[in-house]
């Protein structure tokens, strides 16, 4: 098993957000996590990535048979965890190229590999740029600075392609995308999915799941996963709303 979350509880500023999440993810699977706003979807992603402002109060997370909480943020990344940000951060003065060169080479260093030489790196980057249709002009700009919503999300998928993670968590990658950008982003994700990696897609809308077809759909409500199903569940949610689920659960 790639990722195993058991009874995970987490809080921020004393307010409990995750109230016992259980989730198992195997290689080769695509999971979708849906649920109403403010119920802990992004918190779950942040806790797995290692954002320090969240306090883990209980439970355990095992990743590749290691205790995830023994690893710091960059170690988790080097071990193959990738978080696609809901709001990608702007870094003025750092070009995408130099950012990615630093990231790729740091990850290689972690794995005991030599840094990629400049020529090989440029070729590798070109290849991955093509995947999401990113132009050279964009690649030479500062990371996310002045990017449109679509460009920012494309950039996230491009970085995912560059780093080839084993576990990618895409936090609302579809928000703020028009239909064309959505296709490109989803197309990129589909090309990257294979039998050796796993992808967790966090989304509000069933729309994204028309393009990225999940093996499992989970509903996260009030800090817990309240229902798990197939992609059909997403359709049902789209039709009936989350209230249906509450009613359904309470046996009405």
């Amino acid at each position: 098993m790639l990722l195993e979350i058991k009874d995970l509880k987490a809080s921020i500023n004393g307010k409990q957000i995750l109230k016992g999440v259980n989730l198992n993810v195997n290689r080769g699977e695509i999971h979708a996590i849906m649920g109403p706003n403010g119920n802990g979807k992004s918190t779950l992603a942040s806790v797995i990535a290692g954002k320090e402002m969240f306090k883990v109060d209980g439970g355990q997370v095992r990743y590749k048979d290691k205790n995830l909480f023994d690893l710091n943020v960059e170690e988790r990344a080097c071990e193959g965890i990738f978080l696609g940000f809901q709001y990608p951060v702007e870094i003025p003065g750092v070009s995408i190229t130099s950012f990615m060169r630093a990231a790729v080479n740091e990850q290689r260093k972690y794995k005991g590999l030599d840094p990629m030489d400049a020529f090989a790196f440029m070729k590798y980057m070109e290849e991955k740029q093509a995947l999401v249709g990113m132009t050279d002009k964009l690649a030479n700009r500062s990371v996310n600075e002045g990017f449109s919503g679509g460009e920012k999300k494309k950039n996230e998928i491009f970085q995912m392609a560059m780093l080839q993670p084993e576990l990618a968590i895409l936090d609302e990658t579809d928000s703020g995308l028009d239909i064309d950008a959505l296709r490109i982003v989803a197309g990129g994700v589909n090309k990257l999915a294979n039998k050796d990696n796993a992808i967790i897609v966090i989304t509000h809308y069933q729309r994204l799941l028309d393009y990225i077809v999940p093996d499992f759909v989970h509903v996260l409500a009030d800090g817990k996963i309240v229902k798990t199903g197939t992609k059909e569940l997403a359709k049902e949610l789209e039709e009936k709303g989350y209230d249906w689920l509450k009613d359904h659960d309470s046996g009405k």
């Binding site: 290692g50 954002k51 943020v73 990738f82 003065g93 950012f99 740091e106 970085q159």
Partner: peptide
């Protein structure tokens, strides 16, 4: 230094110290 940018960079595998340096250099670049 922008804490969000630091976290973003660490999330891509760049150690905190290297990320700090990268941000400082970017600052000098202007």
């Amino acid at each position: 230094l922008d804490e969000d940018a630091l976290f973003y960079m660490r999330c891509r595998g760049i150690p905190a110290e290297a990320a700090r340096r990268l941000l400082m250099r970017a600052y000098a670049d202007e």
